[in-house]
Simulated assay, not measured.
Amino acid sequence: MRAAVRSGLVAAATALVGAVAAAPPGDRAWTAAPAAGRPYAYLEGPAGSVLQDTLSVTNPGAGPLTVRLAGEGAPVAFAARTVTVPARTRADVPFAVTVTADTPPGDHRGTVRATAAGRELSVELLLRVSGPRLAALTVEDVSVDEAAGTLRYTLVNRGTTVLAPTLAVRAEGLLGTVLDRPERTLPLTLRPGERTTRTEPWPDPPALDSVTVRLTAGAPGAAPATARTEAAFASGPALAGAAGLLLAAAGGGAYGIRYRYGTRRRGGPRTQRASTGATS
C-alpha cells in the first residue's frame, strides 16, 4: 500500500512540478505554504490510513531556487525531498502522512519544513485521527525538595485529545493548612501520550512540621486527578528553639520536684520533734 502511494506521489509530483503556475514578478522572498492559501495543512482520517496534501513553494526571484523539504513530528513522505523551482513560478509538491494502526484517536501535530538560500520556513501540520475522544490526565511522582523549597510532579496525558491542564495545591500540617493555591491553568498543552515534569515553588514552607501535600490536576472534559506525598520540615533554628523549650520545661519540672521534696523533708522532722516534746 505504501509503495503504491509513493509511486502515485512521484507521478503527481512530476506532473505538478512540471506544470508550474506563473507568479507575479518582484523582489519578494520565496514562500512555502499549504495549497489553496490555507494557514496550515489539515488532514483527517482513521488509524492505519495514508492521508495526502500538497505544499506550494513560490519563487518570485529572477533565478531558479532549490528547496529541501522535511517533516517533523509526524511520518511525512514527500514526492521529492529536493525541488528546484524555476524563476517567477510556483511548484506544488504532494506529500503524504502515514497514520499507523496504533495511533490513538484525537488531535496530533507535526511540521513541514522547507529550506532554501539560507532560510527555513515551517508549515504547521494538524492531524485528526478519527475515533472515540477521551480526555484523561494523571498527576504522578509528587515529591518535596525541602532544601530548594519546591514541589516536583509529573503530568501525563492518558487520553486521546490535546489537553490544557490545570493545577491546585494544598498542604496540611499538624496545626492546619500551610499552603493553599487555588486551581489555575498551566502555560502548556499535552498531546495524547505526552508527559511533562514540572516544579512548583514553595519559598516559605513551615520551619518545623509534618505535612501532607496534595496536588490536584484537571483539564476540560477530564476527571480531576489527585496525588499526595508526605514531608517533614525541621530547620536548625526551629530545632534549637524546640530543644530549648523542652530543656526549660524539664528544668522547671525538676526544680518543682526538688522544692516539694525538700519541703516535706524539712517539715517532717520538725513536726516530729514538736510532737515528741509536747508528749514529754
Rank of each mutant, 00 (worst) to 15 (best):
Thr84His: 08
Phe78Asp: 03
Leu125Thr: 07
Val57Met: 08
Asp145Arg: 04
Leu43Trp: 02
Arg88His: 10
Pro60Glu: 03
Ala116Pro: 10
Arg81Gln: 15
Pro39Asn: 01
Ala148Gly: 09
Arg128Gly: 09
Leu137Cys: 05
Pro24Leu: 12
Val93Ser: 10
Arg152Asp: 15
Thr84Asn: 09
Leu125Asp: 10
Thr54Leu: 13
His108Glu: 07
Pro94Lys: 04
Trp30Ala: 06
Ala62Gln: 11
Ala114Gln: 08
Gly159Leu: 05
Thr54Met: 10
Ala47Gln: 02
Thr31Phe: 07
Leu126Thr: 06
Ala79Lys: 00
Glu124Asp: 14
Ser143His: 08
Ala22Pro: 06
Gly131Met: 07
Val129Gly: 09
Thr82Phe: 13
Leu134Ala: 14
Glu72Trp: 07
Asp27Lys: 04
Thr66Asn: 06
Thr103Trp: 11
Thr103Glu: 13
Pro24Tyr: 08
Asp92Ser: 10
Arg90Phe: 06
Thr138Met: 05
Leu43Tyr: 01
Tyr153Phe: 12
Val76His: 04
Leu151Lys: 00
Leu51Tyr: 04
Asp141Glu: 15
Tyr42Ile: 00
Asp145Thr: 03
Leu65Ala: 09
Gly149Trp: 03
Thr115Met: 12
Thr54Glu: 09
Gly48Asp: 04
Ala41Cys: 08
Thr138Ser: 15
Ser122Glu: 15
Arg119Phe: 14
Leu121Arg: 15
Val156Gly: 00
Glu140Met: 04
Thr154Ser: 03
Ala148Tyr: 03
Pro132Ser: 11
Gly48Asn: 05
Arg90Gly: 07
Phe78Ser: 02
Asp53Tyr: 06
Ala117Gln: 13
Leu69Ala: 09
Ser122Thr: 12
Ala101Asn: 04
Pro34His: 02
Leu69Thr: 07
Phe78Ile: 05
Ser143Gly: 15
Ala135Gln: 11
Val93Asp: 09
Glu146Pro: 10
Leu151Ile: 05
Thr160Pro: 03
Arg68Asp: 15
Pro105Arg: 06
Leu121Gly: 10
Ala23Leu: 10
Pro24Asp: 14
Leu51Glu: 05
Pro75Asn: 04
Ala19Asn: 12
Gly73Thr: 00
Ala41Asp: 11
His108Val: 07
Ala80Cys: 05
Gln52Trp: 09
Pro39Gly: 00
Arg81Val: 13
Arg158Cys: 01
Gly149Met: 03
Ala70Arg: 13
Asp145Gln: 06
Asp107Trp: 12
Ala41Ile: 12
Gly45Asp: 03
Ala135Asn: 08
Gly45Cys: 02
Gly48Pro: 02
Gly73Met: 00
Thr150Asp: 14
Gly18Ser: 12
Thr103Ala: 13
Gly131Pro: 04
Pro24Ile: 02
Ala148Thr: 03
Thr98Asn: 09
Gly118Thr: 11
Ser143Leu: 07
Asn157Ser: 01
Ala41Asn: 04
Ser130Gln: 12
Ala147Cys: 02
Val139Asn: 02
Arg88Trp: 02
